[in-house]
Structure formats: structure tokens, C-alpha cells
Amino acid sequence: MTTPADDAVAVDRVSKNFGSTVALADVSFSVQRAERFGFIGPDGAGKTTLFRILATLMAPDQGRARVLGRDVVSDLWTLRARIGYMPGRFSLYPDLSVDENLRFFASVFGTTIEREYQQIAPIYSQLEPFRDRRAAALSGGMKQKLALCCALVHRPEILFLDEPTTGVDAVSRREFWDLLDTFKQSGMTILVSTPYMDEANRCDRVALMQGGRILAIDTPQAIADSFDRPLFAIRASDRYRALKALREWPHTHSVYPFGETLHYADKRTDVPADRIATEMLAFLSSHGFDDASVERTAPTVEDSFIARMGAPEGVRAA
């Protein structure tokens, strides 16, 4: 696979093993400049290993990875000043204040908060009320913002965010993505990994990962659309029993809990959707689910992901 030299990230057949555990198996992809590229997959899919390789912290066993046109192994010193990396674990100094943490990382990169104020202003303005508070005393969402601020303080051209929203409440997660939107306008390339399927829609393109492999790369819409059967959302008061009953129905292709509902896809592709719905309602009421409702729904990235890899362990639906 040849990739244009001006790609922000070009990964060519990268593999990485830890002992007998395969973390990455023959992974290839490229990310364009100014693109927001998401990696979606359960824990253990190899996302963190991939990010550590791209952030020059780890060398791949096989294959080559180039970031901003430079090799992550041989050009690591020139690369480090140009990339921003936010590890999955909160890794700032808990005993230092918000300001002290920021100043520290600014100084490590040979710059100052004042000089970079324009760049970090959107986040820093939110952190400023807590500038003298110790990082240990910040809420989870605030910690993430501080970490992002520290990763941005040297004006990186590309940002690697490894599960930035894991363990953060839903409101803070949305705020975090809104923040990323403001940086997207400045032309920064952002690679972000997440186990949350709903966050896929906020990326330009996503890669579905499982077991160290990339299952698919496309826009969130295209991935969702690749789900090629009519999909139904079923509501029933006893969801668990309804799920069990539907698994026994001969026409069932797949059925699984999805949020408050069950998502159902039919085996038959030649039957109109409204007929399937009617039949299903009849089936459900014959099994005692008189309050059940069935309606057609649009497939999401998660539906597509589940269809591709079977029942995923550890995938978190929001």
C-alpha cells in the first residue's frame, strides 16, 4: 500500500506482540491532515498499543509507522516536539495545582502559557476558575480537560487521545467532544480512541478494531449504512423474557439489547419491513407480550459493529 507523503499518519503492516499475546496484527491505515479519526473497539483491541507506537513510546515489532511524514522509530526526537499525546490514565501531578501542571508541561516543551494562550484559550478559560486547585481535587471531567490542555500547550500538529472520555460522566463527555470541535477548525489532526460507540459519530472516519486487527475503516455513516437488513427497535415491559422468546423465533437473524430497547434483524431479505413488523407483533402477543411495540429504526455504528464481530465483550453502549 502506498500512501501520499503528506498524510498525517501512515501505518503500514504494523505488528506488535507481548510474549504470546498479539496486541497488533498486520495493521495498515492512513489518516489525512486535519482529519478526526476514531478508533473504536472493546478493551484489549490494541488501541492503546497502537497509540503508544504512534506517540513514539514503543517500537513496532514489524512494519513501519510514519507520523507527519516522519518515521516514529528513527525520527522520534523531531517528532516529539510536534505531537501531543494524552494517555488513557490520568497522568498529571496530583500535588500540583492546575496552573503549575500547565506551566510545568509548557516549560518541558520550552514555551509558556502566555505565549500559547491563543491555542489553549478554549479549554483554559474553563479551567481558569480552578487554577489554584490541586489536580487531585478536580472532578473527572476537569482532569481530562487539564490533561488535554497540557497535551496542547506546545501547539502540536497532531493529537493522540487514548480513551480520553473513559470513566467520565455523559455530560462531561459531550463537553469534551465539543472542545475537540473547536480545535478541528484550526486544522489539527486528531486521532482518538474510545470504547463508546456513540462517540463514533463525532469523527470524520472511524476504524473498528478487535483483537489487534482493524475490521473496517469508513465514515461513521457508511459504517452504519453497511448494516444491510431492516432493523427494528422493540419495546416490551419484560425485556429479558422478550429477548429469550425472540431468540427462539425461526426468522430471527440477530437480536440484542440496545439501550432501553431490543434491536432485531430478520433473516428474510425478500419480505417487506412492515410485514416483518406485523408478524413480529403477532408473535410477541402470542407469547404474552401484549404491551410490546415494534418500530423500524436506523442502524447505528454499534449495530454494524455487533453485526461484524458477534456479541462484543466490553463494548459500552452509552
Binding site: 513514539t56 516529539r80 499525546y85 494517555p87 490520568f90 498529571l92 518541558v108 516543551f109 497540557c150
Partner: peptide, 13 residues
């Protein structure tokens, strides 16, 4: 333990 060493390792220091 804190993970700050990893954070420092990606800097040009």
C-alpha cells in the same frame, strides 16, 4: 506509578 513518566517521555526533553 502516576504515569507522568510516560507523559514526560513523549516530550522532547
Amino acid at each position: 506509578e502516576l504515569g507522568t513518566l510516560e507523559q514526560l517521555n513523549v516530550t522532547p526533553i
